[in-house]
Design a protein around this nucleic acid. Structure first.
Lengths: 211, 211
DNA sequence: CCTACCGATCGGTAGG
DNA sequence: CCTACCGATCGGTAGG
């Protein structure tokens, strides 16, 4: 059974329009949720700011929880894109770890999202609210930690890591500095944010074999 | 002009009733806000859980923002009380610093508030929402940091600190570990919580002069 | 003239 | 992709 162009083309155009609308809405959703949380992200407010009807958001995303999950995934993709170039430019596993750390501080600093690191914020917001949103956030957290550990273990295998470095400990420290840095930066404490970055660099330097 | 007992006593009883009601309400408010945030703390829910009328909360606390501020202060007092005994038992400034750190982990661990460390959570919740609530939280954060720095500087003055220890850096690290530990504990990641405690102890031990 | 509390309802807005 | 509604609940306030 063949399908003629004049039945496919309208579908494609509609699909394309839907995707563009979806992206526009998710962009606003990420900005709102980064400052006011995924609960502060209300459908009415999102519709008003994105210039669409409330019912439109319903059709594109379903209920509120689905919208929250879609926003989490969207921001995850955003962060992933910000890592791409620095990771590609890095030589070896230790430099890739450094690129991850530097990219995080750069992402927050350039205020791509007004509330800084969305994932840190949402982790705190949903830490005590069991459900699919918390599960999704916990997955992202675990994946990030795993990524840091993988980079560290690869650095060890490549002989780039100083003897006696505890990779679990170093990964924990780097992530802890980010947790505090995100609150400090958004609250307006630039000094504490810079301290987090400086200490992160110091830890990385201390863990690397001298060349 | 003298005041007879039978005119004072009813006032005192009314005052005492008001204080007891206030305490009961604030206890619930702290529990609710620790898990669902200061925005999740709604007057209707609080009234229902505390077993009082909504209008009662209005009369006792004023508007919602005043209730949020009162809850912050109440939890601040709660934390202060949990520090009292350990601090009194400590010998010297370094032990007092250790007591502060250990008390924090103990406070979270015993689940006195279901959402763990209220102050860390609210710092994240309001970090990007300017206003009196954020200002109050920022004050508390600064006071806590100041307290850690004071204990460290006192330890230095008492000759308890190893040469080369950066007090600003150590204070930052201890607070960063707590920021991550609070999310980890409440999200159910006990391993990460224990890692935070172990690393905190390790940092403290490394900073102290060997005896 | 004050407080502590009640049941009811205000204008708006939430998710659906 | 929109308007028009719903049951409920929000923070806040009325009179008693």
């Amino acid at each position: 059974m063949s399908v003629s162009q004049d039945t496919i083309a309208p579908d494609d155009r509609r699909r394309a329009r839907g995707d563009a609308s979806r992206a526009k809405i998710l962009e606003r959703a990420a900005a709102i949720a980064s400052t006011d949380g995924l609960e502060g992200l209300t459908i009415g407010r999102l519709a008003a700011e994105a210039g669409v009807a409330k019912g439109n958001i319903q059709v594109l995303f379903g209920d509120k929880e689905s919208l929250q999950l879609a926003t989490i995934d969207w921001v995850g993709q955003l962060i992933e894109e910000s890592y791409a170039a620095p990771l590609a430019a890095a030589n070896g596993p230790f430099e890739r770890l450094t690129a991850l750390v530097e990219s995080w501080f750069a992402f927050v600093e350039r205020r791509q999202l007004p509330g800084g690191c969305f994932m840190n914020a949402v982790s705190s917001e949903f830490r005590a609210r069991p459900g699919p949103v918390r599960d999704r956030v916990a997955e992202r957290r675990a994946a990030k930690r795993r990524r840091y550990l993988d980079a560290l273990e690869a650095a060890r295998a490549a002989g780039e890591l100083r003897d006696g470095v505890d990779v679990e400990e170093l990964a924990f420290e780097l992530l802890a500095y980010q947790a505090l840095a995100n609150v400090a930066f958004t609250i307006g404490d630039d000094e504490e944010f810079e301290r987090a970055r400086a200490i992160s660099r110091k830890r990385l330097k201390a863990a690397r074999v001298s060349t």
